[in-house]
Design a protein around this nucleic acid. Structure first.
Lengths: 237, 237
DNA sequence: CTGGTCGATTGACAAATATCAATCAAGCGA
DNA sequence: TCGCTTGATTGATATTTGTCAATCGACCAG
């Protein structure tokens, strides 16, 4: 592993995160000095659930899948994309990871020792406030996902997912799925076979899929079916 | 509504919560002075999802159901029992509630203005740290619930739920379900009809149910089926 | 006591979802 | 280019779960 000392060139990207953007320079620099940066190839397991959490992770480039396993079954819980942190809660609590993490592609990851995070947290009120905001946001995200899972059928989940992606892509009629369909299926809580059928089922509402490319020919119609709701689908509210 | 000023007699109960137990007296008292306390009858809706969150709620006695609604469907997300807080995340962020809340029985609830919480948060580092700990705990709880939902069948969820309840009840062979079966069903993500059948299905593993009373005649056997896991079922880890 | 109400249970059936096996199609290295 | 591998799709089928209707049973008010 590399020795502490994140390259200065990575500072601005990290600094731009809401979690770090408001804190004092002095404290930010202290955090960065203790951090490692590593480049990982595709399909590397970064974190195994159950292990003690020693680092806060910041993904600088690439993509990371957060997943969980039980009794031989596996499910994708979330995807971390640059630039964002993951497993903040475990770091803060010093508790074991609840999720595993693996790279979906070649990824550049910064590792900030959890003890440093906790130390700076005590020294910098602004940082403390940012952590609270971030944690509250994470919590609300999971609650939304849980509502999605419990209140909707798989077809409805897919329809709303597509609308959210479309919105993320700037509202364009056409956009690309950001990852493999098998992972999307797992994320949405269904099998790959069922995802295929669900896409077919949405043809009736103007959804066309060719490979990774999705076209929404009649957004109104899809929305009438999907009934998106800001308390589930709006990532910011 | 009562005027601010929580009765002094309620102070100790609130103070005992991890969220408030470490903070300075001065700040705690300031929070309490701005708080209201109200007694609510059974089946009163305290909070409606989507509304702005003006108060941090503390349940002093009784029980509160946190639930969500979408497209005419409803699901129970969690139960708040004394003494604990709920909707901390919404209060902190000043964001709309993601869940509704209703009393399950006659309940006594303290309402602490969110703005007071945010003010004291800025003034008291110890309190800030407690909030972070609490939020991280809440986040991890929801992640566990999501793993439970996505990785297990309804029969497995029920089996593990019973083992958790048994543990909560001190590990006794016999214990009572803490709420209506229809709500339990909703909490576990199934219909009441299916819950009935699931209980029957667990007879094969030594589970006996009479009304609200559950007897686990062969814990080993039930555990072999349920395969409890600390990263899903341990509320503390 | 006696209806009446509400939740729990049961059975029959329908819908949703998963599983298994086969095939298809794109990407890639020799 | 040709196989080879991997993921996606499809069809057939099984399992799980939900729905609907009926009944049961506890509790409560009169």
């Amino acid at each position: 592993m590399m020795r502490p000392g994140m390259p200065d060139s990575d500072y601005p990207d990290v600094r731009r995160l809401a979690l770090f953007s408001e804190m004092a320079d002095e404290h930010f620099n202290a955090l960065m000095r203790g951090a490692y940066v590593q480049n990982f190839p595709q399909h590397i397991e970064l974190i195994t659930e159950g292990e003690p959490s020693d680092f806060l992770h910041v993904i600088l480039s690439g993509a990371v899948d957060l997943f969980s396993v039980w009794n031989g079954r596996e499910t994708s819980m979330a995807t971390a994309r640059p630039v964002s942190t993951f497993i903040l809660a475990a770091s803060i609590r010093g508790a074991p990871y609840l999720m595993s993490a693996r790279t979906l592609e070649k990824s550049r990851i910064a590792l900030i020792p959890s003890q440093d995070v906790r130390a700076i947290f005590g020294a910098d009120n602004v940082f403390a406030r940012s952590i609270v905001t971030e944690l509250a946001h994470c919590y609300r995200s999971v609650v939304k996902t849980q509502k999605d899972l419990k209140l909707r059928t798989s077809l409805e989940r897919l329809a709303n997912y597509l609308l959210r992606q479309q919105s993320r892509a700037g509202g364009e009629t056409e956009f690309d799925l950001e990852f493999e369909k098998r992972r999307l299926a797992s994320y949405l809580g269904m099998t790959p076979e069922n995802l295929s059928r669900a896409f077919k089922g949405l043809q009736a509402y103007g959804v066309v899929v060719q490979g990774n490319r999705v076209t929404i020919t009649d957004q109104q119609d899809l929305e009438r079916f999907a009934k998106p709701n800001r308390l589930i689908d709006d990532p910011h509210s």
